[in-house]
């Protein structure tokens, strides 16, 4: 069977001026992940590679380009799950790390734990020789300006801004030639978040989940809403009940909207290679590498296609 990889660059009201760069970013990440699959890499390797590419791209809110918390600091969350064994690794509230997804993978592979947080996660990074980067290296001029601007608003107004604007988590899901699925999600969280705020991204079943018996999901959108409905796990429970990945995504996002008034997006693959990219926000930049073709879009109902090898 053929391998499939899908990535997203976050579900939110992406402003027009950021549209083209966001689409370019997800396309590049999907190509990068697909090349890993093509050269025999596992689904796990591919989602890590794709998410690293998104973390390194300053247009996205993860790694370099992350949003700032209320103190003007960068605190990052990430998760990776291996659908074969259900093994997973996550970091929450980690600072000065360029690629949190790789640190999450190290937690999975080099510790008996699943999640490390705060200072403990940084100590672990140091102990295995992952280089730290100064905060300035992760902060873009754009984010500094936005943060300054938003700091002037009172808290009530900010909350509205948060639900509408800054939720551009990144993520990837993949199925490899052996039929193994995996997911990875990484984020800087929401702008002006409280120090120590942990969103949905690093929480297994919420920001992502992967199980060879049903599929893999990575979520984005309003984190607190995703947590309330354990969105990734919800999507896969519908798949387990016989729904297609597209219907399962639609049902789950609709449920999140009806039950807790939250908007978001998901990308899903099934071990069969079936895939979907779905969102209830204004936009979500996504791309999928399938059978030598690259599908992509950013607006509702948009499904553009080009050759994967360009």
């Amino acid at each position: 069977m053929s391998a499939v990889l899908v990535v997203h660059g976050g579900a939110w009201a992406i402003p027009d001026e950021m549209g083209p760069a966001s689409v370019d970013g997800v396309k590049a990440a999907a190509r990068h992940g697909a090349s890993v699959l093509k050269s025999g890499g596992s689904a796990l390797d591919a989602v890590e590679a794709a998410v690293r590419s998104l973390e390194d791209n300053p247009i996205f809110n993860a790694g370099h380009g992350a949003t700032l918390n209320v103190d003007g600091e960068v605190e990052l969350d990430a998760i990776i799950v291996d659908g074969r064994t259900l093994a997973s690794g996550a970091v929450s509230c980690v600072t000065n790390i360029a690629n949190p997804v790789s640190l999450a993978r190290a937690v999975m592979e080099k510790t008996s734990h699943i999640m490390l947080t705060g200072k403990g996660a940084n100590q672990f990074a140091e102990s295995i020789g992952i280089n730290t980067v100064p905060t300035d290296k992760l902060v873009t001029e754009y984010e500094k300006k936005e943060w300054e601007k938003h700091k002037k608003y009172i808290a009530g107004v900010m909350q509205e801004f948060n639900t509408k604007w800054a939720h551009d988590t990144v993520g990837a899901v993949a199925v490899d030639c052996a039929g193994n699925v995996a997911c990875a999600t990484s984020t800087g969280g929401i702008r002006n978040k409280m120090v120590g705020r942990v969103g949905d991204s690093p929480v297994i079943g919420c920001g992502g989940y992967a199980d060879n018996s049903s599929g893999a999901v990575s979520c984005t959108g309003h984190g607190e809403s995703i947590l309330k409905v354990t969105l990734a796990r919800l999507v896969l429970s519908h798949v387990e009940q016989g729904k297609s990945v597209a219907d399962a995504s639609q049902l789950s996002l609709q449920y999140m909207s009806d039950r807790v008034q939250g908007a978001g997006g998901t990308i899903v693959v099934a071990p069969s290679g079936q895939w979907a990219a779905t969102f209830t926000t204004e936009r979500m930049a996504w791309a999928a590498a399938v059978d030598g073709e690259l599908w992509f879009g950013i607006n509702p109902e948009e499904r553009l296609k080009e050759k994967l090898s360009q």
Partner: peptide
């Protein structure tokens, strides 16, 4: 928020 960690 739904979760706060460590020093925060």
């Amino acid at each position: 928020h739904a979760c706060l960690t460590a020093e925060g």
